[in-house]
Amino acid sequence: MTPAEMLALTRAQEHRVEDFYQTPTTIIVVTWGVAWTIGFLALWSASSASPIAVPAGPAAAVFVVLMIAGIVISGVVGTRTGAGVKGPQQVQARIYGITWALGCLAVPMLAGALFRAGMSAEVAALYFPAGYCIVVGILYLFGAALFSDRSMIVVGGWILFIGIVAPYFGSPGNYLVMSLAGGGAFLVYGVVLLVARSRRDRRMVGAPSRG
């Protein structure tokens, strides 16, 4: 083999390892993108502001099911990240993954206590979106620090900003902001990750990757 082919072999393996750590992040990002976009859109559709009148019960059920699915998927994917590797990077990735599930669980858990203390449905409508945004925004910024990933600073900063701003739109406007600006941002980021990966793999075409 020529030196150029040998160098291509090492790059291919570096990418393989990169994907091994990166794929779980992509799955989690896309999961929350879908859950937020559809979930908050469902809540908004049930409100008086919506042009189509969706019953509140089913809309809330869709939201709850999507949030639970998001917590379960990110928890399972997160705890399996880096499985089969022991070392500082794997420990970091696993702590990060578990923090996602715990952070997203903390929002409804705290809401339970607030409801007992007399939180109204109107206040809850402001609390949930903002709570999720603050948790997720900070998780992204935490990820940016952990993996030295600048793209995560942008996404994290944006989600945090949405969380702080959306409640000022009042309910149900905040649901729409959450669905489009929050969930939409996740989906855009998911697409950015996938495009970057396929572009990188396309550059590798022609180089031997298996031996």
């Binding site: 393996q13 070392g87 500082p88 794997q90």
Partner: peptide, 11 residues
């Protein structure tokens, strides 16, 4: 390459 890419001290 794979072992090196997994990072320092990784098993």
């Amino acid at each position: 390459s794979t072992l090196a890419a997994l990072g320092a001290d990784a098993q």
